[in-house]
Computed example of a mutant assay.
Amino acid sequence: MSKEEIQKASDVHILDYLNSKGESVMKQGKYYRHADHDSLIINENGKWYWNSRSEGGHGSISFARSFYDLSFQDAVRDVNGLSIVRDYTRDVNKEEAKVFQYPSQYEVATQKNIRQYLVNERMIDKRLVDSLIKNDFVVEDKLKNCVFKWKNSEGEIIGADRQGTVKMDTKRGYFKQILANSKEDGGFRVDVGTPNKIALFESPIDAISYYELKKPENIRLQSMSGLKDQTATTAIKELIRECHQRDQSLEIVILAVDNDQAGKTFTERWRDLLKNTEHHKPELKDWNLDLQKRKKEKVMKKEREIEMER
């Protein structure tokens, strides 16, 4: 292990390392919190601390050793072996670095990889995927990622989710990332008709899958990219304001997050806060798994019918 190799790995910002590994982090003030381990805090200066384990350190190498249980040498190799996307820099504290700028230069004209992933692997209807691409909600980037654009009511891009389409050897299986400096209380959203209802989801793919399963009308499908109270609050307030401008009122808030303990806790908290809520719970863990199950059952039923005709 040469000094040059160690220095190269040391120069990689921990947030860039996390994003390149497909680990999702959420910005909270001057700090970042790991989406799956909320006691794991990362500072903009590169320091990190995992409260539940009473462990901490500085930089990508120490983090890789602790989080992935690697030796020092393997941690250096892991950091250096990635195609690091340098969305974060050493001057993250500069104000201009905090302004979201959508990296349109990374977009490609093809949709081959995202179509294959969304239609064949996630089993989302091809016509729905075509519509999302046509209306510039979903694009493919140079790294074959599926990019879900966050747009506000004026159509401005205020953030984005990146979803990998190629399997990775990580706990998550696929690369996942929220683009640096995305609006903290923003998220991917799609309006169906003239919305007087809003449904909250944990991911863009869950929102799309729910739509295909339920075919709701006059609704805003809002992803929070996790379970973010701030995003839920802003999204509900914005739709209330838009409804008032049309001399309407917000009819219902649909809580449609994952069917797990975290989703249950989120749902119970928001049902206590709001009166006009409905809880739509997926049968399996999330809406996309429900969609895949339905599609597979249809295929099996058709195969049985063909077999019986023979």
Rank of each mutant, 00 (worst) to 15 (best):
I84F: 01
F201A: 04
V85W: 07
N259T: 09
K144A: 10
Y102C: 03
L132Y: 13
F72R: 14
E107K: 14
I236H: 01
S62E: 08
L70Q: 12
A256N: 09
D247I: 05
I157S: 02
I14E: 04
N196F: 01
K214S: 13
H58A: 05
F201V: 04
N93I: 05
L284R: 14
D141V: 02
E5S: 15
V139C: 07
V119L: 03
Q292N: 08
Q101M: 02
E309V: 10
R33C: 11
R86F: 12
S203L: 11
K293E: 09
Q248H: 13
F266A: 02
I124E: 02
Q105D: 12
A9F: 06
T231K: 09
N19W: 08
V85D: 00
I84P: 01
V119N: 09
Y117I: 03
E217N: 15
V79P: 08
Q230E: 15
S153P: 01
M308E: 13
A109V: 11
D185K: 08
Q28R: 14
H13S: 07
K149E: 02
K264Q: 13
L179M: 10
I219C: 06
N43P: 00
V139P: 03
K171E: 15
K301A: 15
V108S: 07
D185C: 07
H37P: 00
V108T: 11
N259W: 11
I158W: 00
I208V: 15
L273P: 04
V25Q: 02
F188G: 09
E238R: 09
